[in-house]
Each structure stands twice: as C-alpha cells, then as structure tokens.
Amino acid sequence: MPRPNPLEDGSRARRTGRHRAGSWLSALESEAIEIIREGVATAARPLMLYSIGKDSSVLLHLARKAFWPAPPPIPLLHVNTTWKFREMIAFRDRVAAEPGVELIVHTNREGLHAGVTPFTHGSDYYTEVMKTVALRQALDAGRHDIVFVGARRDEEKSRAKERVFSLRSPNHQWDPRAQRPELWNLYNTRIGEGESLRVSPLSNWTEADVWRYIAAEEIRIVPLYYAAERPVVERDGRWIMVDDDRMPLDPGEVPEMRRVRFRTLGCYPLTAAIESDATTLDAIIAETLATAHSEREGRLIDHDAEASMERKKREGYF
C-alpha cells in the first residue's frame, strides 16, 4: 500500500491546496446558515457581534445569505474601545451605510472618562474594562438572548472545547465544566431568565477556510489585511503599527515604513503586523497555509498568562 509520509514530504501538509475546496466550503456554508437560522428562529432579541474583522465580514455575509431576500433580522454590535485602526472604523461605517444593516456602537463611557488606555493601564486591565465590561453593558442594555460571534474552534484550544450554542450565565460567564451536551444539529436553545447563548456559526471553520471563502464569495474586507507600506515600530520582536499620534513612542523609537499586513485585527496597539508581500487573496491564502505560526500570535492579550483566553471567556470576553 502506498504510504505518503507527511514527515518525509518536506513541505507542511497543510501547505498543499490539492483538495477541491468547493465541496467542503459549501458544506461549511450550509452548516453555518443552518446555525444562524436556528438561532434567529428561537431568539427573542438576537444580536451579532461585529468586530470589523474578516470573521465578522464572513458572518455578516452568511447572515445575508441565510435570510435573502430579506435583510438579516439581526442588529450588529460593535464594541468600540476607541483604539481601533482608523481604516477599520472607516470600513465599519461603509458597511453600516448599506441597506438592511442595523449597527449598534457601544463604548464603555466610564472607562473612557477614567482614561483607561492600553498604554496607561496594561493590556489586561484595558481589555477587561473596554472590551469585557463594555460588552456586558451592551448585552444587558439590549437583553439579548442569542448572540452570534465569529469564533472558530481552530483559533485557540479553549475554543476548541466550546459548543456551537454556548450557554452564558446572567453574569455572562462561561462554565466549561457544565457545558450542555450538543448532539447532531439539535441545538438546545432553551435558556433561563437572564441567561444567554453565544452562537458560533463558524465553529468548524479554519483560518484557511475563512480566506478561501472570502476569495470564493468576493467578500470585502478591511484593507489592513493586505500587505502595504505602513509605519511600524518593533516591540518585543513584533511589528506594531503607529496608527495615530496617541501612541507614545519610547525614547529613540522612530516609526519606519515596512511592508506589512495583519492576520487578525483588534485594537491597534495590541495587534501586531507581520511582514508580508501578500497583496492579493491568493497570496494571503498561500501565506496562511504556509505559516508556521498561529493566527493569535499577533494578539498580545493572549500571552498575558497561560489559559488567559479561558479565563477571559469565563468572565464574559469572547
């Protein structure tokens, strides 16, 4: 029997694009649409978290497909930390102007007034106040029972453990030890007073799937994902983009122009760029399949402590 041994293959197995992506992409799409419809059909006040990133763009696209010819009956929530890249905000505003899109923007005013920034309070505390608390405020205000998020199981190993329909307590906490069994496509959407469900239609997608789907469906994304000359400084071996003059520079630190792009987008001081020449989707897909590093490596907040992601989720972060 022929035995192609991946170890002797020389190249990483995942680099190969020899599969026909079409059949599984359309299966993933149909599954995601089924999940979105199931959530909306059983929700009183559904909501979709909109982070402006590529996963959000895919999620919004799927929601549009799920309810065509009607607009998606789901408002979008953007939790604005006020530290998003300017290009992200411009992109968000273009999306919000499209017909059928209802966008809610929420910022933690108390945090803002208290002057909480990633530079003054540390990434951990800043994330807690401006993202986690802000999100809880917005969800409580809207009493949303079903909240769609763009999480994927391949992102991070505590997410790999999470259900598609994941229960949150009235305090928005996730209890990983008490997850409901989830069988077949039979999602239990019953919840008690104050509880809510985080629903992840992209659970079974990989980063490469997201890119392949963006290419196949010609989904628009924030230009920061494509390589371009951008002003960056090097910190702890990572390229941090200087997006505006709020960023304090260390003595002697001078921004330099480098050809970079982002694999993942968050708050600009907390999201590192990678050096890249990928200016097309094909180039991005090739780079994604070839990379030796995980997507979240560019996220500074994940590195604060082991299991930080699980802890943040237990507290109500996504």
């Binding site: 991946p6 293959d9 197995a13 020899r18 599984w24 391949d154 790999a160 453990k161 030890r177 990989t206």
Partner: peptide
Amino acid sequence: TIDVAYRSVETPRRR
C-alpha cells in the same frame, strides 16, 4: 480530558 475538543486536520489526501 473533561470535554470534547474539536480539531481540524488537513493532510494531502483528506480533511
């Protein structure tokens, strides 16, 4: 192991 973990694996022959 307490809960089920889902992982994607892609090889040249199958996903």
